[in-house]
Design a protein around this nucleic acid. Structure first.
Lengths: 203, 203
DNA sequence: TGTAAAGATGCAGTGAGTGTAAGCTTGCAT
DNA sequence: ATGCAAGCTTACACTCACTGCATCTTTACA
């Protein structure tokens, strides 16, 4: 089925709102920017903004669902020989790849900076991001449990997913905070994945 | 130095606000309860509530600092023979012990239920809790790095702390969701700790 | 071309959270 | 004891996120 005019307009408006919001956040800061301003700059009613995004923060997390789908795909395509750790590593690779091709830095290098800065400075955005991450972690756990019912139970699946995601995310945050470049950050997160898989006894 | 009258009153008012808020949340639900109601029931001005807690949610996380102190204590008291995994396990034990003696369930069994229910149903509280947990995770990483500067760097410290906290917290959530009893939940979290320490390769 | 559904808009309202200025309480020095 | 300064509480006015509802416009489709 082709994309209808209605669907196209909806996608455009959504995109416009995201872009406008990001621009204003970059120019004036997150808290200094009101939803009314964003709507006005995008030339829609304030209410329309809330028709698209449940909260002001959500405009920053428009593509989370895509990542969830990517993760689901990895588990679906797994090889019979893949064990839990293999699937997790492939998931990590896939998400990174998706970020590099479809994420903000792909088209616009500046936009990535904006995201980073917001994430580093606005507590409510940090909390929201963690909440999203938590949702993704639960998805990972759910998929793992489904794919490996013989070696995992709901608790260990959650533990495994938590360890992996927690390590990668913790290292990513630390790397960013340390001022590492994008490539270094990705490498740091990969190292964290190895640490999670290898366990903490070596330390 | 003794506790002055001013400090005493402040602590009492704070305690009163927490108790009143919790009671109202239990009776009418979180979103149905306004800060104005809490303040009225505690017989203080609405503004006074915000003098004590920056947001409505924060009234539920009054004792987080205590936990941070407990964690710092563990690292400070570590034995020379303790390695990273040992310190993490001791930290876990200490936090659990502190929860069992000083946490809500100690005095009031019902209160724990209220917390659980709020955490399970109100997204903003969930996000806040995760944010707090994230802060604790960073603290753990910081202390580990300080205590083991020869085996850890900032990135690996963050990865280790993230893996451990992520596993325990993920398993705790899953266990709660599965309807396990308090003892079972504690056991599930302990198992998650072992999984994080042992690594994910066994799966 | 008409009609029903989806979506956009305006409006009125709730409630969280802030800044400010004024008033009361406490700690402390004389 | 008395007075002064610092710390809290309070009232008030305000901003802004977000909701519900009724109405109008646009689109899909027969």
């Amino acid at each position: 089925m082709e994309e209808s005019r209605r669907e196209r307009k909806k996608r455009q408006t959504r995109q416009l709102l995201v872009g406008t919001a990001l621009r204003l956040f970059a120019e004036q800061g997150y808290e200094q920017t009101t939803v009314a301003q964003i709507a006005a700059a995008a030339d829609v009613a304030t209410k329309t903004f809330f028709n698209y995004f449940p909260t002001k923060e959500d405009v920053l997390f428009a593509e989370v669902l895509e990542y969830m789908e990517q993760m689901a795909g990895v588990v679906a395509e797994r090889e019979p020989s893949d064990r839990v750790a293999d699937v997790l590593l492939k998931t990590y690779d896939r998400v990174i790849a998706h970020y590099l091709t479809k994420g903000p830095p792909a088209g616009d290098r500046e936009l990535a900076k904006v995201y980073e800065h917001l994430l580093a400075t606005v507590p409510s955005i940090q909390a929201k991001a963690l909440h999203m991450m938590f949702g993704m972690q639960r998805e990972v756990a759910r998929h793992l449990l489904e794919a490996f019912p013989d070696v995992l139970d709901p608790i260990s699946a959650a533990a495994v997913a938590g360890a992996f995601v927690g390590a990668v995310q913790g290292a990513g945050g630390a790397a960013r905070e340390a001022g590492q470049s994008d490539e270094e950050i990705v490498a740091s997160m990969a190292r964290a994945a190895e640490i999670a898989i290898g366990g903490l006894r070596p330390f």
